[in-house]
Amino acid sequence: MTDIEFLKYPIGRFKLPENVSESTLKEAIETVRSLPDLLEEAVLTYDDQKLNTPYRPGGWSVRQVIHHLADSHINAFMRFKLALTEENPTIKPYDESSWAELPDNQLSVLPSLSLIKCIHFKWVFLMENMSNEDFQKTYYHPENKNSPTLMEVAHMYSWHGVHHLAHIQHLAIRENWLSKSISE
């Protein structure tokens, strides 16, 4: 399928679960926990040609997606800490597209995979030790003009990681990059 909407949003656009609960939060945290290993599994064997392949026409390369995830999730973790220690702090948005064009996005993906692993380790620990009241804390996003709760943000970044992992996985399927299974 080459529908551009599917290529942009292979798992659909983010939607907060209708019934946010302790159960959906645990699932979101588990997704954040598992993302680093799933990303490594998806890209560690890729050569430069594969890493430099855009996941869709006009989209970022696999390499840029990995670096973006590190940048984005570092920012998300810091936003959590700000919200936990200040009253509805105003966060600093950043231009993701411009960041994706900076020279560090030409590096190997290994540093960003390591950053993702470390940030997610700390982030999961933080979330697992937050109270229900903590998850109701907010930050103000000046671009979106809203103050999401950390509960909403946890669900959003759970989706965000899987969203970009799906970009990489669907590209691998379309390009027939998947190795043969043991049973074949």
Score class of each variant (00 low, 15 high):
L102I: 10
M156W: 02
Y9N: 14
E5C: 06
L178M: 13
C118G: 13
L150V: 15
M1D: 08
H155R: 03
A42V: 11
V65P: 12
V32L: 10
E22A: 15
K50T: 09
L115I: 15
N132C: 06
E18D: 15
F125V: 01
V162K: 13
H67D: 09
L84A: 10
V20Y: 01
V62C: 06
N105I: 00
L7F: 05
H155T: 09
S97M: 11
E184Y: 14
E27C: 06
F14N: 02
S181Q: 13
T24V: 08
M156V: 01
N105K: 09
I66K: 09
V43P: 06
L38T: 01
D95L: 09
R79S: 02
N52R: 11
Q49Y: 10
I74H: 13
H164A: 03
I182C: 00
V65L: 12
V109Q: 14
A28E: 01
E18L: 14
M130Y: 07
E41I: 08
A100K: 04
E41N: 15
T2Q: 05
K15H: 00
D134K: 12
N146P: 05
N132E: 15
L25A: 02
E133I: 14
W177F: 02
A76T: 15
D47M: 01
S97G: 11
W60H: 06
E22H: 15
S21Y: 04
T90I: 03
S61R: 10
D104F: 02
T2K: 03
S72C: 13
V20D: 07
R56V: 06
L126G: 07
N105W: 07
K92Q: 15
I91G: 05
H68G: 13
